[in-house]
Design a protein around this nucleic acid. Sequence first.
DNA 1: GCCTTGTGCTTGCTCTAGCTAGCAATTTAG
DNA 2: CTAAATTGCTAGCTAGAGCAAGCACAAGGC
Lengths: 151, 151
Amino acid sequence: MELPKVGSIGEYIREQRTQARISLRQLAAQAGVSNPYLSQIERGLRKPSAEILQQIAKGLRISAEALYVQAGFLENREPDSDVLTALRADGTITERQRQVLIDIYESFRKENDAKSGGSEDGDDADPLREQESETTEGQHHDHRHRSQEDH
Amino acid sequence: MELPKVGSIGEYIREQRTQARISLRQLAAQAGVSNPYLSQIERGLRKPSAEILQQIAKGLRISAEALYVQAGFLENREPDSDVLTALRADGTITERQRQVLIDIYESFRKENDAKSGGSEDGDDADPLREQESETTEGQHHDHRHRSQEDH
DNA sequence: GCCTTGTGCTTGCTCTAGCTAGCAATTTAG
DNA sequence: CTAAATTGCTAGCTAGAGCAAGCACAAGGC
């Protein structure tokens, strides 16, 4: 899976706009920003705030997060494991606690990646998964992984 | 399970800062923003950009996303599953790693229960300190377990 | 006591994000 | 063809984000 490349927010917005086949003025109107400003943004002359990006995303009918990633406000995230999703949504721990748990969890996963060795290219996630399921089988756990192996 | 409530970004930052037990000037220095400006932000006099929020998050050692949610730049996501359930089902970590994470997570929650049971004002600081020392112990513990696994 | 250090805040300033008014070029409609 | 509409852009302006310099107060050390 290839992640979208983080680049110029203005080029990205123009790209999305032309794909949507709407004019600069139409998008500006739908987004609720001035058309000269949108023009400046597209040409890289101005640096829009997150609020403006939110409005432009609404006008383009795409997620604001996609624009935040292009603008460098958000890191492009790898697909979440269930654990990461649950940790991020958990309301019983503080933000620092959350980050500590995430950091530990991810360092564990890195260790496990390094330990299983295999292809370092990482060009294919599937063989890596098979190796890990072997490891987990050896340690006698997780009923779920077993049933997957049966299939 | 209760979702974090979206509210004033300034209050939220002050809250995280006091939980971390650092002064306004220390956070400003760690975040790379001016201390008067951070003061204004905390008192709701100014509205920081996403870049500034990124820097403050770095200084607080929390995710920028948590601050974006509070600032209204991101929507808070619904919980998909419980943390414990996800940890138990996760196939990318070993059983020992799983237990370490579960232990830490539960001790965090215990401390937070104790905190919410008592007065929320001054008792914050002390239990949080204990949490952090437990966290480092947990990490040391993990290193030990790793060497055992190698053998 | 005085001096130093730390703390959060006030004040005044600079810079730029985002706007309005309007232009020139192109396209569309009659 | 002309006139109107559409398009993307220029120029000038204001508001406020974010800063540096400095203040008042509290705490600590000699």
